[in-house]
């Protein structure tokens, strides 16, 4: 039920942003659409809605996680641009295994997305039961599971643990 209310509010906000400026006609239609969406898919959205109320998690997300993420994303772009423009095509690809201690679905999703958008790595599959991610790495520096974990995962894992777990 709580997850449905959260989804309803987010859907309504999204609707009013999409139909900017909101007047009462738009809002009325938006309420019905948001109700329908919340009714159909509400139980899939936030399984642990109670963590949405902890304000410190938002602080960690916006102040600590987002700048790191944007910086890494920009570095990733320069890295790919350098590799693509280099005449010799300096790549050394492979799929490595990394370990993670994160448990919740949201945290794993964000970790996989962060890995994909950071320099040289692309998550291929998750083995949730054993906490293992398979990561395609354009320039393999360490074939070992511990070494790869240290380079690929640790930048984000501590922050994501504080935000989502």
């Amino acid at each position: 039920m709580r997850s449905r209310i959260v989804l309803f509010l987010i859907a309504l906000l999204l609707w009013s942003l999409l139909s900017w400026m909101p007047d009462w006609q738009h809002l009325l239609v938006g309420v019905f659409v948001a109700l329908l969406v919340a009714f159909l898919t509400g139980d899939l959205f936030a399984q642990r809605a109670h963590i949405l109320r902890r304000l410190s998690r938002y602080k960690y997300f916006f102040i600590h996680y987002l700048p790191v993420f944007l910086k890494e994303c920009f570095k990733a772009n320069l890295d790919v641009a350098w590799r693509v423009l280099h005449p010799a095509l300096p790549i050394n690809p492979g799929i490595v295994k990394v370990k993670t201690h994160l448990k919740s679905d949201t945290a794993l999703t964000f970790l996989a997305n962060s890995i994909t958008l950071t320099p040289g790595t692309l998550s291929v599959d998750i083995d949730k039961d054993n906490g293992i991610l398979y990561v395609h790495w354009i320039d393999v520096k360490d074939k070992d599971i511990e070494g790869a974990t240290r380079i690929v995962v640790e930048r984000f894992e501590k922050l994501l643990k504080k935000i989502f777990d």
Binding site: C73, V84, I138
Partner: peptide, 26 residues
């Protein structure tokens, strides 16, 4: 740069790397 990567890089996984990163931020 992302499109150049799609053409120059050798296999589907490397091409995905170029496609996701450059095209997302671009």
């Amino acid at each position: 740069f992302g499109c150049l990567g799609l053409v120059r890089l050798p296999d589907v996984y490397n091409r995905l790397q170029a496609a996701t990163k450059c095209v997302t931020l671009g």
